[in-house]
Design a protein around this nucleic acid. Sequence first.
DNA 1: TCGGGGGCTGAACTGGTGTTCAGTCCTGAT
DNA 2: ATCAGGACTGAACACCAGTTCAGCCCCCGA
Lengths: 245, 245
Amino acid sequence: MAYQYGASKARAGHNPLGAASTHNITGTGNTSPPAQEASAKERIRDAAIELFGELGFNDVSLKTIGRRAGVSAPLVVHHFGSKTELRRACDRYVTERFHAAKLDAVHREGHMPQNYIFQVMQESRHLVQYMVRAFTEGGEEIDNLLDQLVEDSLVYTAEAEELGQVRPSQNRRHRAALLLLTTFGSMILHKQMKRLLGVSPVDDPPEQWGPYIAAVSEIYLNGVLIPEAYPDLVDFVEAFSSRED
Amino acid sequence: MAYQYGASKARAGHNPLGAASTHNITGTGNTSPPAQEASAKERIRDAAIELFGELGFNDVSLKTIGRRAGVSAPLVVHHFGSKTELRRACDRYVTERFHAAKLDAVHREGHMPQNYIFQVMQESRHLVQYMVRAFTEGGEEIDNLLDQLVEDSLVYTAEAEELGQVRPSQNRRHRAALLLLTTFGSMILHKQMKRLLGVSPVDDPPEQWGPYIAAVSEIYLNGVLIPEAYPDLVDFVEAFSSRED
DNA sequence: TCGGGGGCTGAACTGGTGTTCAGTCCTGAT
DNA sequence: ATCAGGACTGAACACCAGTTCAGCCCCCGA
């Protein structure tokens, strides 16, 4: 029972949950020469993103980061000033990377890409894991990234709604925000998801996401509750319709 | 625009998202005399649950816990042996508390209660916050609690499905698990939710949950995608129907 | 050839942690 | 009255974190 939905839909066109792409966004930055081995500073930054994403900011020591980067602990502060500033640098880097991935996808597809997050996810899970964990703690840079994701989601959802693919909403921004929050939130609990669904969208490759995609899709396609049984709730939801932007 | 859905539905009967109750489950344990001021050991345990839930296990020192409990740090280890064992004690306590809340609700209502988590949530948010954070890190005791919540959810969803209130599913267990994971996951991101929806289900009282309830309900009532636009996805979901238990 | 500066390190420092220890206080049984 | 034991504390300990410091190496420009 192989997972192949992503591929088939990518051929068909719009695809809200997966996107096939071989484009590499995990290389070194735009301005640096293409095929050069990473500098110590870059290795430190990458190691920090991996470890912070995996274990959390306070559960990773500079020595651990240094070891993974093949470097001493003092060199980390030599390059980044302090652990806190290292964290901010990681925030900035991840934000830039997502921004670049979006621009790249827009350029390739000619319109707002369908959830470019999933592209990043398939190619560089560390970045996503870092981002998700950073969301839980907050911070100016990372909060802006989330805001941006909401805005982007709003745009491509509007496109999809116009094409009759997505239902209208009483509050599109709230819906977009909640969908992102629940998706990211469930990724924080990916170890439990592995136990309960047999899949971790963080540790397992996309080919194995089937059960997860299936469960999510069922809910998003059909809903869960039967509206006729909840007239009060239906009214309540409608009462919350507010000014759209 | 006051939130009053919970109350109205509680009168009406079944209520998947809220439950009105004045019953107190936050008192001292079953066996202890009812109205006695908390012992130092209990105060320590409560302080630890609050702080662990708020800040995470490794970001809270024994001194901090002791200070909140009005006690010295060594007394914490005197009563609990070590910080790790304190954590396990908290896990056990929270698990017991949820178990007791369920039994209590079953006893009162005569059937599997509709999401007794929400009752606990309204009465003792600390417990929920601790539980959610504990899920991210895992652990035998806390994993069992989550498993139990899935099982319970399965039971009352079956009741509701029989009453025509909830849609059938290709994989009820996966759906139940995913709903719990996304709900809890979004609670981990409650600070972001506060920013994006204006409500934190952790920090704000239930009267203010309106925007959150509305957004969740809209999705659960109607879904998000229009199935006709995603025939492949519909097929894919159906292909994942598996043996129910 | 030389000199300077940046990448980089080991050793040392400071502060905070969990834990141990010795001892005080209080209570309740004998 | 006494004494045993548990609750409880301040001081001390070992450890580990982030950071500082002095100095090494090596490349590159003059």
